[in-house]
Design a binder for these strands. Structure first.
Lengths: 112, 112
DNA sequence: TTCTTTAGTTACCATTACGTTACCACTATT
DNA sequence: AATAGTGGTAACGTAATGGTAACTAAAGAA
């Protein structure tokens, strides 16, 4: 996540700036999962079966704080919460697409 | 880094595959630093002033193990070691470029 | 009444990542 | 004899991340 310090400290490296936002094991995957659709919490959890619910909650909170995603809560029973990409989040599409392309071409089914 | 488990476990997500290789705070920056030139250890340390030498050593080792960079050691005194991108490392250029572009357009000088 | 469903939270622990400081080998220079 | 320069390593500690299990509220269904 981006701390206050990091917001004010002028770090001149654009790559660092990006890593501060989507570094970590899960954030790129979560954003990738939201790339085309609004999704409910449980839906994301199903699509990323190896993430625990706690960690998913934590990561979604940070992504929301960093304004990459939007959380919409419906006061129903049982509860319903929908997550979607913000404009800032959508602007990351080229990065995620480049990552997906690389992963597909270089890793999958290659036993590297 | 990529563990044996991750190599054999078929993880079908290309984005995860990429994150396993360049996740973490420093690897994208190191690769970005090597994008155009072979560089010596001390040179990298100077260009990334906030990384500690130990962590730099660790990350370079992992990048070498994952075959993203090549380490060439010259037996001189004082010692000289040069790091450069492998072909696999070079193939990540589009991802790094996308990250750089995003960082430049969205973060720098914006006090987000 | 009890069970089910959703989207969490809380407490707790383990593992990984990151960081600091001190130190080393070897040679040339001062 | 002491210092500088290079590319590290060793010991140690903290911070961040990841994970499990148990629990919650509220409404509807069996």
């Amino acid at each position: 996540m981006v701390t206050k310090e990091e917001k004010t400290t002028q770090n001149p490296c654009p790559v660092s700036a990006m890593v501060a936002l989507i570094g970590g094991k899960w954030k790129p995957i979560i954003l990738y999962c939201l790339r085309s659709d609004t999704r409910r919490f449980g839906e994301i959890a199903t699509r990323i079966p190896t993430i625990s619910r706690k960690v998913l909650t934590d990561q979604l909170k940070e992504l929301e704080q960093d304004q990459l995603i939007i959380r919409e809560q419906f006061n129903e029973t049982p509860p319903r919460v929908e997550y979607s990409l913000s404009e800032l989040g959508k602007s990351m599409a080229p990065v995620l697409a480049a990552m997906e392309k690389w992963g597909t071409e270089n890793i999958l089914n290659k036993h590297l």
